[in-house]
């Protein structure tokens, strides 16, 4: 098994590791870097739980190899809040609108909706639902997630 060096910036901090070529980015984040806030739900790119930002774009970290992140910037849920005492506005909206129950899918949904709201600061409910359509949640029936995203947008306005 060939080993490759990966140098990547995650949430503003530089990490350098030697990894197997086949190591998934999700496993790299979780098991090499200990950033277990990114969750793995299906490992075939359907549930969206493992979504992280790669150079600002949401990607499924279970469909990318760690080596593909070499020289690039990653953002995960751990880096979302600006300080331990202050939630990111979207996190705050999720709390206020009860946008999560078991919390397992939440990181992936946050990392999908943060760039969505950057691009669509005043979305309609339909747009929010479309944007959420790549993330599975089995607990909430989605309504409070939709409410949370709309609440975050409203507060930005």
């Amino acid at each position: 098994m060939s080993r490759h060096s990966v140098s990547t910036e995650v949430n503003g901090r530089l990490y350098e590791r030697e990894v197997d070529a086949r190591l998934l980015l999700s496993d790299f984040l979780r098991h090499e870097l200990g950033l277990t806030g990114t969750h793995v739900g299906c490992e075939h790119g359907v549930c969206g739980a493992c979504t992280v930002l790669l150079d600002g774009e949401p990607v499924r970290s279970c469909l990318i190899f760690a080596v593909q992140a070499d020289g690039r910037k990653l953002a995960t849920v751990e880096g979302l809040a600006s300080s331990p005492d202050e939630l990111h506005p979207l996190q705050q909206a999720f709390r206020d609108a009860h946008g999560l129950q078991c919390g397992f899918c939440t990181a992936g949904i946050l990392m999908t909706m943060v760039p969505f709201l950057e691009e669509n600061p005043a979305p309609t409910e339909t747009q929010v639902r479309e944007a959420l359509s790549g993330n599975l949640c089995r607990c909430t029936g989605y309504q409070h997630i939709v409410d949370a995203v709309l609440l975050a947008a409203e507060r930005r306005a």
């Binding site: 806030g37 751990e78 999720f94 999560l100």
Partner: peptide
């Protein structure tokens, strides 16, 4: 509001595989 949420929305909640 749920007291569970701050840990879960910041990625600090620990599930078995973590």
């Amino acid at each position: 509001k749920r007291r569970e949420d701050p840990a879960l929305i910041t990625g600090k909640g620990k599930y078995t595989d973590d």
